[in-house]
Design a protein around this nucleic acid. Structure first.
Lengths: 207, 207
DNA sequence: TCACCTATTGACCATTGGGGTCAACAGGAT
DNA sequence: ATCCTGTTGACCCCAATGGTCAATAGGTGA
């Protein structure tokens, strides 16, 4: 089906993927423009339709492809025998940063796809999401040793505060990068800052 | 300039404001459609241009108007003699919820306006933002008694964790509301849940 | 009843931009 | 010289855009 696309060298694939997910993430399915995508990707209009047939098929392919990308990275590299929550979440943050280095709009695209309500694709996306939820949900917290947390607080809320902190931290850094001229992201600095938050949160929520 | 609009009864003004900021927040300046706005507001196309002249003037008016709305509410109702950080931030959360009741897309609109890069309005918006930053920034934390916080952690990071928690909490609730059929928001329940987070964060970060 | 007036309508206009097509081409291999 | 595969971009039709304006609705005073 998409073999023509998948046989390209990775650099070109990634250029097209990034152009497309950026456009969809920013504007949603309906208002994303194939003209913009080909301009950003540096290919001709005809070629895009040669690879994907039409806009809808391209969008659905991207959704599947991005989800696989994420799932593969996480389940290959996350050590499920690791029982410490902070170590585990640190792993997750690193993996996320690695992915964002190659695909800056990967997670934004997936998030927006969840909210997509263009009638053209809503049904298919909803179906995909439902299937995925049945399989994947909750695996990230599997096997964690929760006895290390102080027990005078609702542990679910603690976990939320911690994950929210790292989500907001990375969102803030992405925002800064967008405002800066070259859109440059200093992953090293972010990582060091994240470490300081780890320290604070450990002090605050472990026994 | 906009006196024709401002002389309308408040209900009609709000209907138009909400239709417009929703459209701009969702699609950005360029792709926001005046047709969609008038449809959602329940007025005719001609009337919108009768009030605002053109799309650009409407957008810039909305930005100013929304900013004033927020500023007025905050500086009228926040008690700057209140020295306790949690009490202060609780006030802020309540005010934000009140505003969201009347203008569900108010903050989303402002946030997106900050990122707007349509050439048509970018210059004006950037200028407005610059002016505002010089005046307003940092007032929210003025006069807070920071000695109540434990001193084995970087206090700036603590403040961030706390504000982020409440931002994420409200974002999560907005998301839930979007998924629910009637888009209904149960402010009472959110408020109670926020209280539980206040309790946890106090325990974690006060001496 | 009718003339006047202001607030409001929505069909209409020129123009842009959309998704999608396809004849033509580039250039390496046989 | 002839394929062949990968690639181009001018072109198509049409939907939708921001904006206009003659026509109307409906209240007011005479």
């Amino acid at each position: 089906m998409f073999s023509k696309f998948l046989n390209l060298d990775k650099e070109k694939q990634d250029r097209i993927i990034n152009a497309a997910i950026k456009e969809f993430a920013q504007k949603g399915y309906d208002h994303a423009s194939t003209n913009e995508i080909v301009k950003e990707a540096g290919i001709s209009k005809g070629l895009l339709f040669h690879y994907f047939g039409n806009k809808k098929q391209m969008f659905l392919f991207l959704f599947d492809h991005c989800y696989e990308l994420i799932a593969d990275h996480f389940y290959q590299k996350i050590d499920l025998t690791e029982k410490d929550f902070f170590t585990r979440i640190r792993q997750a943050v690193i993996i996320k940063m690695e992915l964002l280095k190659t695909y800056p709009d990967l997670f934004k695209f997936i998030e927006e796809a969840y909210l997509e309500d263009s009638p053209e694709v809503k049904m298919e996306v909803d179906k995909k999401i439902k299937e995925l939820n049945e399989v994947n949900l909750g695996k990230v917290y599997e096997g964690i040793d929760f006895s290390k947390f102080r027990n005078d607080m609702d542990i679910e809320k603690i976990l939320k505060i911690i994950t929210w902190t790292f989500e907001k931290l990375s969102a803030e850094e992405l925002f800064k990068a967008k405002l800066s001229p070259e859109h440059h992201i200093d992953y090293e600095r972010i990582f060091l800052e994240a470490e300081e938050y780890f320290e604070i949160l450990t002090k605050a929520f472990y026994k």
